[in-house]
Design a binder for these strands. Structure first.
Length: 408
RNA sequence: GGGGGAAUUCCAGAGCGGCCAAAUGGGCCAGACUGUAAAUCUGGUGGCUUUGCCUUCGCAGGUUCGAAUCCUGCUUCCCCCA
């Protein structure tokens, strides 16, 4: 039974949004046309290494693209890189990965990953492969023959390796295998299109070479721009701590979204939402804060309900935008025996409650006017000011750290 | 196997005998301001019973009135040659 696809023009319009580069540039249209003419879905590959457990918005950029392919009737093929994960992707790295995961960790991570990935793509309509299925069966001679197709000079055309080489930094042999393995995945699953970030260019091209050598159709590469993280500069990444995870609660996502520098909103709209770009431009020309709230709500409602997103937004406006009391104030127990005549010097109170790391830390905070008490946030004047501690007293250490005292 | 270089406070990276709790940048924290916890500006960023004291500069010893700085050994890492 043949599948019917939307017109090529329409598919192109949807698929090229937020794509930085397609190589070779003209082949996507050809492939789409051929697929439509013959009623054959394109095999769209996306590989992910199960090295961590938090899928964040940066990962969703290509994942969303896959979903678009799926919705147009094409075949998603997900590669769980349980073997490539044992190497670690050297792409864009200045250093080799320090730790290598054990096989068991990789396995657990893979399960976790799929659960999260399923929030973006439709797993019931996707093929899922683990590249250990074929790499695990390879004999050493197969590996040698695979390696004999790639030269060191080719490897050094990669900017990340070249840079490390120039700077006399370590490049480990097994890292060199990474792009080769990734390319071989494409041969195994006979991919028509591979998705990834721009740093994947080398591997995508290598896959074309290997596919050609095997007498297969060559894949094209569609590269998404790298989504910048919350700092607005570096790529979103777990190790950089500048990410928004798709499993985070709505309010946590909201808080992080609102910390985004204004300048990156356009990119977020383009890569993470379906909002028409003209509409996004209009919003960005208006009030930046409103645009940011809209952006946050749009993305959050992809993972939660509209109502959840709205609630997160209004809670943010109330507690942070408006300076109201937080909805949840953590309670911290304090033993009455620590008090003297029901009081405690301010710096002592802050450290006892765990709001400050040390006495010096508390002194600094107080000197800078960050320590406040009660619902009306009365400032503490000096570090040794005696505070009459009552049960239920709210203590503030800056805007973000606070707690309610529970005398015990 | 041989040779060379490096290890500093959260990170990067100065310092090379006293003026070093240690420059500078990043991060982080606080304050001001604001459209938000954006941007910008200012201050802070080892501990303490805080105008002083104590513990820090890979580890262990040593030289010196005095060491992050000099010497010895050890550990780890990197590079080069073969």
């Amino acid at each position: 039974m043949k599948t019917s696809f939307p017109p090529v023009e329409e598919q192109l319009r949807i698929l090229t949004r937020g794509v930085e580069k397609i190589v070779p540039g003209d082949e996507l249209a050809k492939k789409l046309k051929h697929s439509r003419d013959t009623g054959t879905p394109l095999r769209v590959k996306y590989g992910i290494d199960p090295t961590g457990i938090d899928v964040h918005l940066g990962h969703t950029v290509p994942l969303r693209k896959i979903r678009q392919f799926q919705d147009l009737g094409h075949q998603a093929v997900i590669i769980i890189g349980n073997y490539t994960a044992l190497v670690g992707d050297p792409s864009g790295r200045d250093e080799a990965r320090s730790k290598r995961l054990t096989a068991e960790e990789v396995d657990n991570n893979a399960r976790d990953y799929l659960a999260q990935v399923g929030k973006v793509i439709d797993l019931s309509r996707a093929e899922v492969h683990r590249n250990g299925d074929w790499f695990g069966r390879m004999a050493f001679i197969d590996i040698l023959s695979l390696c004999s197709r790639v030269t060191v000079a080719q490897l050094l055309t990669r900017e990340d390796f070249a840079k490390r080489y120039r700077e006399e930094r370590a490049i480990f042999l097994h890292e060199c295998l990474y792009p080769v393995m990734q390319a071989w995945d494409s041969v195994e699953i006979r991919s028509d299109v591979e998705l990834g970030g721009t740093e994947q260019l080398y591997s995508f091209m290598l896959a074309r070479d290997l596919q050609a050598q095997q007498g297969l159709n060559q894949q094209i590469g569609m590269m998404s721009p790298i989504l910048v993280g919350l700092d607005g500069i570096r790529r979103m990444g777990k190790s950089l701590g500048n990410y928004i995870g798709i499993s985070e609660p709505p309010y946590e996502m909201m808080k992080k979204f609102m910390q985004l520098p204004d300048g990156v909103m356009k990119m977020y709209f383009e890569l993470l939402t379906e909002v028409p770009l003209e509409e996004a431009d209009q919003m960005l020309a208006g009030h930046p804060k409103e645009a940011k709230v809209k952006l946050a709500r749009t993305v959050i409602s992809q993972y939660y309900s509209e109502a959840d997103a709205e609630e997160a937004a209004s809670r943010w406006q109330r507690e942070i935008g408006g300076g109201g009391l937080p909805a949840e104030i953590p309670e911290v127990g304090l033993d009455r025996s620590k008090l003297q005549d029901g009081s405690l010097p301010a710096f002592k109170l802050l450290t006892e409650l765990g709001l400050c790391d040390s006495g010096g830390d508390a002194r600094r905070l107080i000197a800078q006017g960050g320590a406040k008490l009660g619902e009306d946030r009365a400032a503490v004047d000096s570090y040794d000011q005696l505070i009459a501690v009552s049960d239920g007293l709210i203590v503030w250490a800056g805007k973000k750290k606070y707690c309610r005292v529970r005398l015990g």
